[in-house]
């Protein structure tokens, strides 16, 4: 067979097809399927197919390793075999379209949701919910870690007046059906957490000196901080809580100094006069 069977574009389509889709997408000008031997040279030690196989094997193994790095807690939770299965299917369905590997897993949580085995059943298993939430949390952490923001390097005094407090530039709030933050923290501390039972949880993620801080918070605190992120003052956020959750004003005022202290220490707040308008 003539070796110049492909244009440059066809050749690249053919090779990429062999790597990503395990089959050629382009067949050049040939009427019959193009054999690897017609495109690739054999060498003293390897056949043409073996030469191509080095690229084929490395393609999936390389990206699988990246997925493993980006979703290390999920890989632990699923076990390496099951994680690899999901990762390989994901990479097959959503091959990378970006010049950066940091976004490789962007669609992974949605993919896990789309492909859950019980998707069409009314009664669902619970463990996939945990895995999907954990995947979403891990990807969110990688985004927060590298997001552009005015880094909060200042210390906000504990006695800052309430009206001068505002949410820190990097403060992200999460609400889950599983104790995702606790699980992740245990894993990242080198422990071997067990698969948790469903338990509604809330957490806050901050970034200080370019390092992430992860905090499990209470539901009321989550809604209070959400309210402040929507532009409300401390006073208005308190009023929101009272109105929405029937909190007793006296109870909230009693607990507020404790909240305020822990929120400032955790870096949830910065003082308006110290950082920005």
């Amino acid at each position: 067979m003539e070796s110049n069977i492909f244009s440059l574009k066809q050749l690249q389509n053919w090779m990429q097809g062999m790597l990503v889709h395990h089959e050629p997408l382009e067949n050049g000008n040939a009427e019959v399927p193009v054999m690897v031997e017609h495109v690739v040279n054999s060498s003293e030690r390897l056949s043409a197919v073996k030469h191509l196989d080095i690229y084929r094997y490395s393609y999936i193994a390389r990206l699988r390793a990246c997925m493993q790095s980006q979703f290390s807690a999920l890989a632990y939770a699923l076990g390496s075999e099951l994680f690899e299965l999901f990762a390989d299917q994901y990479l097959d369905t959503y091959p990378s379209e970006s010049y950066t590997l940091n976004t490789l897993g962007e669609k992974f949580p949605a993919f896990l949701e789309e492909t859950r085995l019980d998707a069409s059943q009314e009664e669902k298993e619970t463990w996939p919910d945990f895995m999907i939430e954990l995947a979403g949390f891990e990807y969110a952490l990688s985004v927060i870690f590298d997001e552009r923001a005015n880094e909060n390097n200042t210390v906000t005094p504990n006695n800052t007046p309430d009206e001068l407090l505002k949410p820190a530039p990097v403060l992200h709030l999460f609400h889950y059906q599983y104790p995702i933050c606790d699980y992740y923290l245990e894993f990242s501390q080198g422990k071997e957490p067990e698969l948790p039972f469903p338990e509604e949880s809330y957490c806050a993620v901050t970034r200080h000196n370019y390092k992430l801080g992860l905090f499990t918070i209470r539901g009321a605190q989550y809604y209070f901080l959400k309210s402040m992120q929507q532009g409300n003052t401390v006073e208005n956020a308190k009023n929101d809580l009272i109105k929405t959750f029937n909190f007793a004003r006296i109870e909230l005022d009693k607990i507020w100094p404790e909240w305020k202290k822990s929120f400032i220490e955790a870096g949830f707040f910065v003082a308006k006069n110290v950082k920005g308008p």
């Binding site: 080095i54 690229y55 094997y57 490395s58 193994a61 390389r62 990206l63 390793a65 990246c66 493993q68 790095s69 980006q70 950066t100 590997l101 940091n102 490789l104 952490l141 990688s142 870690f145 590298d146 923290l185 990242s188 200080h208 370019y210 390092k211 992430l212 801080g213 992860l214």
Partner: peptide, 19 residues
């Protein structure tokens, strides 16, 4: 063995640093 991978790139994925 089958485990060797050319041009390893997993070091290009950010190591998230948690306090």
């Amino acid at each position: 063995g089958e485990e060797a991978v050319s041009n390893p790139v997993d070091f290009l994925v950010n190591d998230v640093v948690v306090n």
